[in-house]
């Protein structure tokens, strides 16, 4: 065997190994998602999605948890979207390359890396106890907002930067102010990218348990929360509760709840990806 054959063989083996590794990454995902669908689908019914839990949560529906998670997601969006997008605008349109800007970037990187349970501690310390919001949707939304902020800022900044510099130059040269340029030209052009980032950030918030553990979550609250100062059930915490804390819980309901949470999160993911790819396809620059 000559060296070139040998080299080709090594290459083939190497590529083969890499595809096995890639398969090793994706196969479990497919299996897990498939398995949850398979086990959870029989649990899904009209009552499961729209009813209140009954018989110590072993029967009935999970509406309060679904609604709680929706409220939390929206609450998170209310705080994090304006702040995150504004911060992204600052970084992309206003900030100079100086120490302060570098500090801001460092802070954002840091926020992204802080463990979710530390956010929980912080939320407990600041919002629940110090500001006396109690365990409430408000405290949880605020905690989750700060957690999602770095995702929103960095994706939104990327989207803003993708708008060609010439657009801005033209707008300014036509007499528009900086803010007018941003609002009329840059923001509309980068909107799909920003929305994608926002949804991806909120997706993470919706699936998290640790930050809401001490700030929002109620074990059992068979009604819908009616003020931001109410505690609430939430899907991830509810799944944790019924899979570890309630005796004699039918397996079907555990997987059913997991499926609803999964659909919620994956649905947001799909939405984000669709917006992104449609915007890319439509982009003229």
């Amino acid at each position: 065997m000559n060296t070139s054959q040998q080299r080709n063989l090594i290459q083939k083996a190497g590529f083969g190994m890499l595809s096995v590794v890639a398969l090793l990454t994706v196969l479990p995902i497919v299996l897990v998602v498939g398995y949850i669908f398979y086990q959870g689908l029989p649990a899904i019914s009209f009552e499961f999605l729209t009813g209140l839990p009954r018989e110590g949560m072993r029967a009935g529906g999970i509406l309060p948890a679904i609604v709680g998670t929706i409220y939390l997601t929206i609450g998170t969006a209310i705080f994090s979207v304006p702040l995150g997008v504004a911060a992204a605008i600052y970084l992309s349109e206003y900030a100079q390359d100086n120490l302060l800007t570098r500090l801001i970037r460092l802070a954002i990187i840091n926020l992204a890396g802080i463990p979710s349970v530390v956010y929980g501690l912080f939320g407990l310390g600041l919002f629940v106890l110090f500001l006396n919001f109690g365990t409430s949707l408000l405290a949880g939304s605020l905690t989750l907002s700060i957690m999602t902020l770095p995702v929103i800022i960095s994706t939104a900044e990327e989207a803003l930067r993708a708008v060609p510099q010439s657009f801005r130059v033209v707008s300014i040269s036509l007499g528009a102010t900086r803010w007018q340029t941003i609002r009329r030209i840059v923001l509309p052009e980068s909107l799909p990218g920003i929305i994608t980032g926002v949804i991806l950030g909120l997706e993470r918030a919706a699936g998290e348990t640790a930050p809401i553990l001490f700030t929002v979550a109620a074990f059992f609250l068979p009604r819908l929360p009616d003020s931001p100062f109410d505690a609430s059930m939430a899907l991830p915490y509810h799944l944790f509760v019924i899979s570890t804390q309630v005796p004699g819980m039918p397996l079907k309901l555990q997987y059913g709840t997991a499926l609803v949470l999964l659909c919620f999160v994956l649905g947001m993911n799909l939405l984000a990806t669709t917006i992104r790819s449609r915007a890319r396809a439509k982009r003229q620059w």
Binding site: T25, V26, I29, V30, V32, V33, I36, E203, R204, A206, G207, E208, T209, A210, P236, Y237, L239, F240, S243, A258, L261, L262, V265, L266, M268, N269, T273
Partner: peptide, 14 residues
């Protein structure tokens, strides 16, 4: 698919 894995809530994996 990798993005899906990134989005799987930790309780579901648990």
């Amino acid at each position: 698919l990798v993005e899906v894995l990134g989005g799987l809530p930790s309780v579901v994996l648990g």
